[in-house]
Each structure stands twice: as C-alpha cells, then as structure tokens.
Design a binder for these strands. Structure first.
Length: 157
DNA sequence: GCCAACGTTGGC
DNA sequence: GCCAACGTTGGC
C-alpha cells in the first residue's frame, strides 16, 4: 500500500507540535478522538510511515506548523474506559473498544506556519478538505499534491 | 465570546 | 427512522 498523507488538528494550548517534540522519543498516542469518521481513518487506513500535517486550531494563527509520522497503527484508546478521564465513554469497554488511537512521532517543524488563511487563498489548495467550509474533522486524509504544496510553502519563505 | 456548521442523542 | 434539541468544534 502506498504511503498516505493526513492532517491532524490539535489546539496548541493543549498539545502543540513543540509539545510533541518534547515527549519521550518525540512520540505520543493520539488519544481523545471521539468522532467516528476520524476513528475509522485511524483504525482502517493510517499505516506506519504515513506522514501527517500537524495543524494548530483554535489559536491566534490557525494553520499547519510541521510534519509528524505515524509510528504505530490503530489500537484501542484506553482513555475511553478510565472513569476519571475527560475522554471517558461509558459505552466503550476493554473487551469491545469503541475508540481507537494511533501513535505519531515528531518529524519536522516548518520554518513558518502555513496559515489557514494562506491555504484558502492558494489556488492549488482550493479543493483541500481543511479549507472547505464547516470542515471540523480532526483527522482527515490529504492528497499527495496538497501535502507536497503545503510542505513546500512551509519550508520556503 | 459569538455563532455557524455539524454530529449525536433520544422521544415519538 | 424522522427530526428537534443539544453539545462541540473552531474560525473569527
């Protein structure tokens, strides 16, 4: 299967790309996703070696700040059955996990943020999911041509 | 903090 | 299985 490309959103106040870099081995498990479409992507389609555009949302300058890499494929999100967790879901159970996460590793920081505003005004990116109106999916597939374009923008000035 | 967009829930 | 109510996301 060919390498695939993704975009994952995180609020930098909660967990930024810099935070990911500081983790042990610059790796974290992407817990807390509670949306079925996003879960299905992680469960069924994300593979080791896939690359991820790391997107900061809900902040002064929303946009893509760098790249991460998938290092572990879908497995149960244990926070769903931890009753103290903010991600606790009584309908999930260890014997029948409802929610899935992957592990991602810091790969590269852009020289600069490729802002949402900028992506929206870039013709080559006009049909990219993240620039579509009302697009809230926190894990979404990205076409190679879009991935390459965003990376090019982020690594040049 | 507002609010539009969208997903989920639950009554019927 | 419809759909109104509600909760969340996330740009602005």
């Amino acid at each position: 299967m060919a390498q695939k490309y993704w975009l994952m959103k995180s609020e930098p106040d909660v967990f930024s790309l810099e935070d990911l870099k500081k983790e042990f081995d610059s790796t974290t498990h992407w817990d807390g996703v509670r949306n079925y479409q996003a879960r299905n992507f992680m469960r069924d389609e994300m593979k080791i070696g896939d690359l991820v555009l790391y997107y900061h949302s809900n902040c002064d300058e929303p946009g893509v700040v760098g790249i991460a890499e998938v290092v572990r494929e879908g497995y149960p999100d244990h926070t769903a059955w931890e009753s103290g967790s903010k991600y606790f879901d009584p309908k999930s159970a260890p014997e029948n996990p409802r929610w899935i996460m992957v592990d991602i590793k810091w790969h590269k920081a852009f020289k600069r943020t490729v802002t949402l505003h900028e992506m929206k005004s870039t013709p080559e990116l006009s049909d990219m999911r993240v620039v579509q109106r009302g697009q809230r999916l926190s894990v979404q597939p990205v076409e190679k041509k879009h991935f390459d374009k965003v990376v090019e923008m982020g690594l040049n000035s």
